[in-house]
């Protein structure tokens, strides 16, 4: 149940099965795009213990970078995506380096304030970003002979990128680097004392997370044909965090579940009742009180009960957020 290959197979299964369950190609693509972004958020939150409210910055910058590059240059699609990753990563390094100077709640507030700074930058410099209207008219270029015009052909393209990103993040999470991040999350002071350059590791985690989130933002802009201001606002950061936490932190496949749950439920509910956010609010409170390990945690304990043992190995980890039960 904890082997990476098993989780990768689950992710591939989700990518394969989504088209059978969701009629709208746009929604299905959105699930994978946000799964990438939530997994990027999870690398910071679940593996490094950094609750970053700035994920929307990297997401939005990815959207704008792709939009500007495709509108103003003749660059092919793939280099544009790489460019979005680089921009996301570089900005994440700067914001990460400034924010980790403070810890805990202060860190959270700093990243949130940075998110507002970038939102107002995008809002103020509307000559470049289109301001409130968003950056409109982004062409969806194909790759060589492959046209991506139909929504399901684009889904296929995003699915491939999703699986590559998922595998790459898994690789990172299970590497020595990823293990060190976990050590920092569980006990930063001890990791520091042992001699790990904790600061550098945290910044590196930011760099990876920024790149992945920038990629997701770029794919999102390409999906809807505009880079909207909402890609970089406070609510984007909040949604990405919520997806990550709903899915379960510290488990990359949990983020896929979280994104799928959030998007499908919100799509269904918002069609029925415009005030569905009230229910989301209630769900978040229930989550904090009773389901602290998210959907993945529920599945794990469900499997545990079936197998006749309680919880996964993570339940043994000391001092981890969520290990305390009410």
């Amino acid at each position: 149940m904890d082997r990476p290959i098993f989780h990768f197979a689950l992710a591939a299964l989700v990518a394969l099965l989504l088209p059978f369950f969701i009629r709208s190609g746009t929604l299905a693509t959105e699930v994978l795009v946000f799964a990438i972004a939530a997994a990027g958020c999870n690398l910071l939150l679940g593996y490094t213990g950094l609750l970053s409210f700035g994920q929307g910055i990297f997401f939005g910058l990815g959207s704008y970078t792709l939009g500007l590059a495709l509108i103003h240059t003749t660059l092919p699609l793939l280099p544009t995506l790489v460019l979005a990753m680089i921009v996301g990563s570089v900005v994440a390094i700067v914001i990460g380096a400034l924010s980790i100077r403070r810890q805990g709640v202060y860190f959270v507030m700093l990243t949130l304030a940075f998110a507002q700074l970038f939102y107002f930058l995008a809002y103020t410099f509307s000559d470049i970003t289109g301001g409130d209207n968003g950056l409109i008219g982004i062409p969806r270029r194909g790759i060589g002979p492959l046209a991506l015009n139909s929504s399901w052909s684009y889904y296929g393209f995003v699915a491939v990128i999703f699986l590559i990103s998922f595998a790459a993040l898994q690789r990172i999470a299970t590497s020595t680097f990823g293990r060190t991040l976990l050590a920092i999350r569980y006990n930063g002071e001890r990791a520091q004392a042992i001699g790990f350059p904790v600061r550098a590791f945290k910044i590196a985690a930011f760099a990876v997370s920024g790149a992945v989130t920038g990629l997701a933002g770029a794919l999102h802009a390409l999906l809807i044909g505009i880079a909207p201001l909402s890609d970089i606002d406070y609510h984007m950061s909040e949604s990405l965090l919520v997806m990550t936490i709903i899915g379960g932190t510290g488990n990359l496949f949990g983020s896929v579940l979280g994104a799928a749950f959030y998007l499908i439920v919100s799509d269904t509910l918002s069609a029925i009742w415009p005030r569905w956010l009230l229910l989301l609010g209630a769900l978040l409170i229930v989550l904090a009180l009773f389901i602290q390990k998210g959907i993945w945690g529920l599945i794990e304990s469900g499997v545990g009960i079936v197998r006749g043992r309680r919880g996964g190995p993570d339940a043994m980890a000391p001092g981890v957020s969520g290990s305390e039960r009410p």
Binding site: I245, A288, S321
Partner: peptide, 12 residues
């Protein structure tokens, strides 16, 4: 609990 849950609950 960890402050992550404070944030989730108060956002809710």
């Amino acid at each position: 609990l960890d402050h992550m849950y404070h944030i989730v609950a108060t956002i809710g």
